[in-house]
Simulated scan of single mutants.
Amino acid sequence: MNKFIALILILIIAPILGGIYGILHDQITYSISNEYYTKFKFIQFGLENWGLGQNNGTETNPEILLENPRFGASIVGTLATWWVGMIIGIILGLVGLIHKTGKKMFKTTLKAFLLTTGITLLTGIIGLGYGKLFLTENRPNWYLPENLIDYDSFIMVGSMHNFSYLGGLIGLIIGIIYSVKQRKNNATQYGV
């Protein structure tokens, strides 16, 4: 496999993995706070216009109830993260060009992407804990729907979402470092 083919494969796989991550992430967070979706995310992504459900709230305090809210959370997760996966894939793919062969580039870049994803998830979990320990007691100056019932869960999920984006950035940096170190290790090992 040459490097161009490896790069194309990375650019195809990265947004798919990013979308899958978003689906799993949002299934977890929907379990913690369905209101985060019915009173915020479903509205933000305009899911009431997709024919999947309806607004059972008011014009000023909407609440979008879907026939299949888990499917709606999956749509939100995919739309919110596929493009992050693409950006990470582009950056890690371009960094991956430093490797000697396309096969090594592909293997190392995929590992770097998975490392980035793991760090993103871990950071999101830390954000959930941070939200529980600190933000529920001192409510942040965020958009909080007036018709919200469970403020704490909503805030915890919001914190997890925000930390996850931060985790993506931290993970990307660590993924780049991993890829560069792998190239240096191979160069030292094989004198390349």
Rank of each mutant, 00 (worst) to 15 (best):
A187V: 08
M156Y: 09
I125V: 14
N49L: 13
G46P: 07
G168T: 06
Q189K: 13
K107N: 14
G51P: 11
W142Y: 11
E35N: 09
I28Y: 03
T58A: 07
K103V: 13
I155G: 03
L66W: 09
T188Y: 11
F113L: 15
E137Y: 09
N34A: 13
L65I: 15
K39I: 11
L122V: 14
L47I: 09
K103G: 15
P69D: 05
G93T: 08
T120L: 12
L114T: 04
G19P: 08
L65T: 11
Y21W: 10
R139A: 10
I126M: 07
G127E: 06
E35I: 08
S179N: 12
G51H: 08
I173M: 05
T29K: 04
N2K: 03
I64K: 02
I126G: 08
T123A: 06
R70F: 14
L166T: 10
G131N: 00
T38Y: 03
L172A: 02
G102N: 06
G127S: 09
R139K: 12
I32G: 05
D152C: 02
S31T: 11
I174N: 00
L24E: 01
Y143D: 09
N55Q: 08
E146G: 12
L65W: 04
H25F: 13
L114H: 01
I20M: 11
K181I: 05
G22L: 01
I149D: 04
I10R: 03
L122A: 15
D152F: 01
N138R: 08
L135T: 02
I177V: 15
H25I: 05
Y30L: 12
Y143F: 14
K111F: 14
G18V: 13
E35H: 08
V95H: 01
I177P: 10
K184G: 07
N68P: 11
T81L: 11
K132A: 14
I91M: 02
I176V: 13
T78C: 11
I20P: 00
E63R: 02
L135M: 12
E146S: 13
W83A: 13
V192P: 05
D150L: 03
E146A: 13
Y37W: 11
L47E: 06
T116V: 04
L79G: 07
I87Y: 04
K100W: 12
Y143K: 10
L144I: 14
P62T: 00
L65S: 05
Y36I: 12
I23W: 04
H99A: 11
F42Q: 06
L66C: 05
T60P: 00
F71N: 09
I173V: 15
F113D: 07
K132N: 08
T38E: 13
L121Y: 06
N61C: 02
I174L: 14
G77K: 11
I176N: 01
V76R: 03
A187Q: 15
I88L: 12
K3A: 07
L7S: 01
K100L: 15
G51K: 06
G18D: 01
